[in-house]
Design a protein around this nucleic acid. Structure first.
Lengths: 407, 407
DNA sequence: ACAGTTTCCCGTAAATGC
DNA sequence: TGCATTTACGGGAAACTG
C-alpha cells in the first residue's frame, strides 16, 4: 500500500509550467492581472479510477511561507538568510526596533523573488484516499511588462545552474556560471525564437563584453551581478538588459534579415575595421548599437575619401521608434549622402562580404510605387490632380565645407 | 417646514458632472474599468448643521430602470418606445416568445444609451430628517476608448438641443439641430482645447460637407444621422468621426501650428485652387485630408511646369503614424522633389499668403545638428570616427521621363 | 529626494456575442 | 456570417511607497 501510495505521488507531475499565453517563450514569469496557463497530469491511469480530478492551485503554500519568508504587506515577501528563529534581545537593538536584529534579512528585488505554485488533488483507489501534491518550478511575479527582461534573466540563471525543484532562496546567494553555460543560453535565446542562433564570432564579441579581452573564454566564470545586475562599464544598463532589447529588436523589426544571416550584429569596432578595410568601397555590414539601452542597429561601410584614404563610416543607430515607420531594408536601400550641391549618392553597395545590396534587401522593400487610391484634385474639377507620392528617406547631409570637428 | 424641505432639496446639486480625469474636456462619458470623478454640493450652510454629509451614488436607479428599461444581460438595457406595459397575448406571438410582442422595442447603440447617476444623502435639522437626491446629466458608458468619439457626439447633441435634466430616451427620436447651433459647437470643440476656434471660412467648408453647396447655411437643419450616424457620400465614415480624428490630430501633433493660425485646414479643393493660382510659385497652404478617416494633413502649393503653366500640387496626406516620428514642421521644412538626376529641390517657399516658410516653421523644427553624444569608432582606436548624423526627409521622386498617367 | 514598484489607462488586437 | 461590443494586455506615464 505504501509503495502504491508513493508511486501515485511521483506520478502527479506538472506537464507544462506556468506561462502567460502571450509569452510562450518565457515560461515561469507571470504578471499580475494577466492570465497564465499550466498543465498537471497524473501519469498512471487505471480504468477503475473513474473520477474527475479536482485540482487546487495554491500560491506560496504555508509550508514555504513559514520556512523561508516573513511577510510584509500583502503579497511581497523578504527571504531570510540562515535561521528564521532567533531570541529577541531588546538591548542589542540600536534603533528601538527588533526587526533590525534580523541581520541576515536580505531584501531581494522583485524579479529575484521566487515563488512556488502548488497543485493539490486527491484520488480514491480501492477504498484508499491518497492526497497528491506537486508544484511548479520557481516562478517570478512581475507587475509590469517592463520587468520582463530581468524576470526572465532570473529564470534563465536558475535553470542554467540548478536542477533543484524548489530553491526559492536561490538569489540570496546566486552561484556563478561559466562562459560555456552562458554562451549556450544566449545562443538559445536567439535560436528558440528565430531561425538562427549565435555564431562563434558573435559569441566571442559578447564574451569580450562580459569578461574583457582574452584568447579563450572557455571555463571563465560569470557572476549573476555581471550578467544582470551591474551596469556595464560606462553604460547605464546591464549586459542582459542591453542584449534582451536587441533580441526584442530582432524579433519585432528585423526578423527576416536576421533569419537570412544578413546581420553580423555583434562585432567589435576593431574587428569591423579589420574586415572592412581590405574590401572594395561600398562594402558594408550591419551591427547592433553598443551604446543604446533600447536596442539599435546601424550599418558601417568602407569608402575612399578625396585623398584616396580608406575610411570606415557608420550612421547613428536606428531605434525601434524609427523602424516602426520604415523597415530597415527600406532604410538601407534608400540611405543617401547629400553633398553640398544637394545631390544624393548611396554609399552602400555590397553587403559584406560581396552581396549586391539589391539582391539581399530588394525583396524586403516596400514596392516602389503602388497604385493611387486617392485623387488630390477636387471631384468636380476636370483636371484630375493625383496626390504626389512621397517616401521618407534617410539622408546624411555633408557639411558645406570640410572643417575640423572642434566646432 | 415644507418650504424649508423643498429649499433644501433644490440646494443639493451636482457641481461637477461625472468625468474621467484623463478626459477633462469630455465630461459625461465614462468608461468601464476607468475611474471618474464628480462633485455634489449642498448650497445652504447652517452652522448648526455640523455633520459630515454621506453621499450615496447609484447608477440607473430603480425608478428609471422600471420606467424606461428592460434589462438584458448584466448592465446594458434596451429602451422601450411608448408604453412599457402591455397585456401579453400568446396567440399574437408568432415565434412562441412573448418578447417579440414589444413591437416598439428599439435597440440603441451603446453610445446612444443614456444613463443617470444619482446621488443621495440625508440631513438632520432641528429634529427633522430630510432625504436629498440629485442626479448627473445623462451619461454615456463606453467599454473601450475607441467608442469615445461617438459617445462624445451624443453628449454634444443632447446638450446642444435640450435642457432637460434626465431625458434618457433622447436618442430614440433625436431632434434635428440647425447649422448655427452645430457651427457653434464645432468651433467650440477647437476653442475649448486649443487657442483657436474655427473661422467663418473653415465653418463654411464644413457646412458644405454636411449640407452640400449653398450660399447661406444659416437656419439649415442637420439631423443626428447626418452628423454622426450615416457615412459621408463615398466615404466609409461619418462626418463627426472624420472631424473628431482631425481634432485629435491637431491636439496631439500640430497644436503649435494650429494655435499660430498656420493651418487653413478646412478648405475645398476648388477654393484652394482659386486662392493659390494667382500667387507666386512656391506659395503653399496646409489642409486636412478629406478622405482619411484617421485624420491626415497635407500641403498644397502652386508651381509652374516646364511649359510655364500654373500647376497646383499636393502630397499624399501625412498620418498620425508618420507624425509620430517627425514633426510636421520638420516635414514641411525638409520636403523635397527629387528629379531624375537625384537633385533635391523644395517646392515650398511661402506659407499662404506670403510668409517665408523659415519664418513660420523654423522655430518648430528640430535643431539642425545636435552635439554628438556617441562615437561610432571604437574606444581604443586612435582615429575617433563620429557616427554620421542622419535625418529622415520626405521626398517625391519624379518619374524619369514625363509620360501620360495611364500607366 | 529618489529609486524600485505598482497602478492607471490608452490603443491595438483578438475574442465574444448577437 | 458580419457587425457591434467587450476583453486582453503591452507599453508609456504617473502615482505610490518606503
Amino acid at each position: 500500500v505504501d509503495l502504491f501510495r508513493s508511486l501515485m505521488k511521483s506520478a502527479f507531475v506538472v506537464e507544462r509550467q506556468p506561462c502567460m499565453p502571450m509569452h510562450p517563450d518565457r515560461p515561469l514569469v507571470i504578471k499580475t492581472g494577466v492570465q497564465f496557463t499550466n498543465k498537471v497530469r497524473l501519469l498512471v491511469k487505471f480504468p477503475e479510477l473513474n473520477y474527475q480530478l479536482k485540482i487546487k492551485l495554491l500560491f506560496n503554500t504555508a509550508w514555504f511561507r513559514f520556512a523561508f519568508c516573513t511577510e510584509t504587506k500583502q503579497s511581497r515577501k523578504f527571504n531570510i538568510l540562515g535561521t528564521n528563529t532567533k531570541v529577541m534581545n531588546m538591548e542589542e537593538s540600536n534603533n528601538g526596533s527588533l526587526s533590525a536584529e534580523f541581520k541576515h534579512l536580505a531584501s531581494l528585488i522583485v524579479t529575484e523573488e521566487l515563488h512556488l505554485i502548488t497543485f493539490e488533488t486527491e484520488v480514491y483507489h480501492q477504498g484508499l484516499k491518497i492526497d497528491l501534491e506537486t508544484h511548479s518550478l520557481p516562478v517570478v511575479v512581475i507587475s509590469n511588462i517592463c520587468q520582463m527582461p530581468n524576470a526572465w534573466a532570473s529564470i534563465l540563471w536558475y535553470n542554467m545552474l540548478t536542477n533543484h525543484p524548489k530553491n526559492v532562496n536561490f538569489f540570496t546567494k546566486p552561484p556563478v556560471g561559466t562562459w560555456d553555460q552562458v554562451a549556450e543560453v544566449l545562443s538559445w535565446q536567439f535560436s528558440s525564437t528565430t531561425k538562427r542562433g549565435l555564431t562563434i564570432e558573435q559569441l566571442t564579441t559578447l564574451a569580450e563584453k562580459l569578461l574583457g579581452p582574452s584568447v579563450n573564454y572557455s571555463g571563465c566564470q560569470i557572476t549573476w551581478a555581471k550578467f544582470c545586475k551591474e551596469n556595464m562599464a560606462g553604460k547605464g544598463f546591464s549586459f542582459w538588459v542591453w542584449l534582451d532589447n536587441i533580441i526584442d529588436l530582432v524579433k519585432k523589426y528585423i526578423l527576416a534579415l536576421w533569419n537570412e544571416g544578413y546581420i553580423m550584429g555583434f562585432i567589435s569596432k576593431e574587428r569591423e575595421r579589420a574586415i572592412l578595410s581590405p574590401k572594395p568601397p561600398g562594402t558594408f555590414l550591419l551591427r547592433f548599437s553598443e551604446s543604446s539601452k533600447e536596442g539599435g542597429i546601424t550599418f558601417t561601410w568602407v569608402e575612399k575619401d578625396i585623398s584616396g584614404k580608406t575610411q570606415i563610416q557608420s550612421v547613428e543607430p536606428y531605434t525601434k521608434q524609427q523602424l516602426n515607420n520604415m523597415s530597415f531594408a527600406d532604410i538601407i536601400m534608400g540611405y543617401k549622402i547629400m553633398d553640398a550641391t544637394n545631390i544624393l549618392v548611396s554609399p552602400l553597395v555590397y553587403l559584406y562580404p560581396d552581396i549586391p545590396k539589391e539582391d539581399a534587401f530588394g525583396k524586403y522593400c516596400r514596392p516602389e510605387s503602388a497604385p493611387e487610391p486617392e485623387m488630390g484634385g477636387g471631384d468636380s474639377t476636370n483636371i484630375i490632380q493625383p496626390y504626389l507620392k512621397t517616401k521618407f528617406i534617410c539622408v546624411t547631409p555633408l557639411p558645406k565645407i570640410s572643417h575640423n570637428p572642434s566646432m
